[in-house]
């Protein structure tokens, strides 16, 4: 059981990265971005393209660090993929969502458009890479370490936790200490007043998409390292992402972090009683329970 909880924390930290971005976008633009799951997929595949394509072509050595499953190529690919997906998110906003906003289309039209965008991203991935599962390093043995309480954990998974922690701290500092970060929180709080205060909200929206997309990309790569890459991986994250976001109160990034961890742990622990394929349903049931008991989430005011 302790082991399942630890695996749940690993999965939950990945969900958190996605949920934070989803919550940021939801908080500022007030619509459900159904393409967010596919940002995770895009991130994982862009990194794959870098690792197996561009970086090997340039001649970056294909080493691994100690008992980790990756080396320099991934270190380089990781931030590049975050930037690329951040730009994809911004581009979608400029091409699609901003046009709809300017026309005064409602939140549902925006959500619908994001669903279309989700499929466009996924279809492009399917056209390029096909429908099979892929690995960053096929065929690599990945031995687990034995840590106290009889928990087996792979070095990759420990690193995943540190990477997530690092990114969350970085985001926290950005939001609390920088002018742009504060303006972002102000815009999420009260967009009209932000405008009155002279904050350029369109620029804030661009930053929000960029950060949301980049964090999702990071989540996708980490999942790819931990498990595998699959064109539907992000779609399968969508329900857990929304469950985490709603549980942690929409717009609250610390709530999204806690929500993500909770959902991740619940999903992994459920595998002790249920088939692992039901993980998605577990996230869904939790979400329905939250909607029934406390629809505004743990940090929401009644």
């Amino acid at each position: 059981m302790a082991e399942l909880i630890v695996y749940g924390i690993v999965l939950g930290s990945i969900i958190s990265l996605g949920a934070i971005g989803l919550s940021l976008v939801y908080g500022i633009l007030r619509f459900a971005n159904f393409a967010h799951g596919d940002f995770l997929t895009a991130g994982a595949y862009v990194a794959l393209f870098m690792v197996t394509g561009v970086l090997s072509w340039i001649g970056i050595p294909d080493n691994t660090f100690g008992s980790l499953s990756f080396g320099w190529r991934m270190v380089i690919a990781f931030p590049i993929s975050m930037v690329v997906v951040g730009c994809v998110a911004i581009a979608l906003d400029r091409i699609l969502y901003r046009k709809l906003r300017q026309k005064g289309s409602g939140a549902v039209m925006l959500a619908m458009s994001s669903l279309g965008a989700a499929f466009i991203i996924r279809m492009i991935i399917l056209i390029i890479w096909g429908a099979d599962s892929l690995f960053y390093r096929p065929g690599l043995m990945r031995p687990a370490l034995e840590v106290p309480l009889g928990i087996k954990i792979r070095p990759d998974q420990i690193l995943i936790l540190f990477v997530v922690l690092f990114l969350v701290v970085l985001l926290h500092l950005f939001l609390k200490k920088t002018k742009m970060g504060k303006a972002m929180r102000a815009t999420a709080d009260n967009m009209e007043l932000a405008l009155i205060s002279g904050i350029n909200t369109e620029r804030i929206i661009i930053w929000t998409w960029g950060i949301g997309g980049a964090l999702a990309a990071a989540g996708g790569i980490l999942y790819g390292i931990d498990v595998q890459l699959h064109p539907y991986m992000g779609w399968n994250f969508l329900i857990p992402l929304f469950a985490a976001t709603i549980l942690g109160t929409i717009g609250n990034i610390y709530g999204a972090l806690i929500g993500g961890l909770t959902i991740g742990i619940a999903q992994q622990v459920s595998t002790a009683f249920l088939l692992p394929t039901y993980k998605l349903a577990v996230a869904f049931i939790i979400m329905i329970l939250i909607l029934l008991i406390r629809p505004k989430g743990i940090f929401g005011k009644e």
């Binding site: 619509f31 459900a32 159904f34 939140a107 549902v108 959500a111 969508l238 329900i239 929304f242 709603i246 349903a281 869904f284 979400m287 329905i288 909607l291 629809p295």
Partner: peptide, 10 residues
Amino acid sequence: EDYLAIATLG
């Protein structure tokens, strides 16, 4: 509206 969307998807 979004909640119904997510719930029906689920």
